[in-house]
Design a binder for these strands. Structure first.
Lengths: 128, 128
DNA sequence: TTAATAATAGTAATGATTACTATTTTATTA
DNA sequence: TAATAAAATAGTAATCATTACTATTATTAA
């Protein structure tokens, strides 16, 4: 890995992400960081989001539908995606790491981990 | 949902998918179905793959990295993605549906299901 | 058989993301 | 502090996967 140099733009991107609980897309990060750095380019946003998630400082969430989203909290946790409003939110739940062992049981390779998210209907979209 | 009309192209796409265990991309489906229908267009392949997966006849696999893949077997099962060779393979494992309850436990919305895949090193890429 | 409508081929457009490059910032060292 | 090296940037172009558009063709129902 090449050595890292400080950049104000990267710091601003990370700070912005940490203020948000809604896991914004790169584009939303871009429009917001532009308030502080009007000349920042979308490429810089993407490059830094990739860089930060590779280094484990933020988390990238691929929903399999629509653009990637980013979470300023890199600690392991799961996400819920509402099928109606498409919002993405954090779940507080006990560990499900035992599913790795289940996956490994009849498998000849090596299962190192998993990717998972949950979907359904969020509180706001729920009919009363 | 609008009414469905038979098409030879759709049948060929589905037949091709059922002969494969490697979960090909739309592009791979395209190049193969073209052997039978040289004039088929990529748009037709995409449209039918979407249509078939919406109707539950095939399964769409979003890897969050690279193009989507398709599985001719629509019955619920999980996939493993090799981080080295990027191949996608089926896993035979016991149910992990209990994770839905775990996700629901402290959640105010309604968890209807989950999406999950496993990753690591496949048998072929494993150092001996 | 005709009429309706769904599906197609071919092409253009879109959206998200990455690549390129000349310039500017940051960090190191004389 | 000034000079240098290296990394990051802005701005733009390019790429990739996928979807949209439209005139024509195929399928199905009457």
């Amino acid at each position: 890995m090449q050595q890292l140099k400080y950049s104000r733009q990267r710091e601003s991107i990370k700070n912005f992400l940490m203020t948000r609980k809604d896991h914004p897309t790169a584009d939303v990060v871009y429009t917001n960081v532009r308030k502080e750095y009007p000349n920042i380019s979308l490429g810089t946003v993407y490059r830094n989001l990739s860089l930060l998630s590779e280094r484990g400082e933020i988390m990238k969430i691929s929903t399999g539908d629509g653009p990637d989203r980013f979470d300023g909290n890199p600690l392991p946790h799961y996400h819920f995606i509402c099928k109606k409003c498409e919002s993405v939110m954090d779940l507080e739940m006990e560990s499900i790491d035992e599913i790795n062992e289940k996956a490994n049981a009849n498998f000849n390779g090596i299962v190192e981990g998993h990717m998972a998210y949950f979907y359904g209907c969020c509180e706001n979209c729920k009919p009363n």
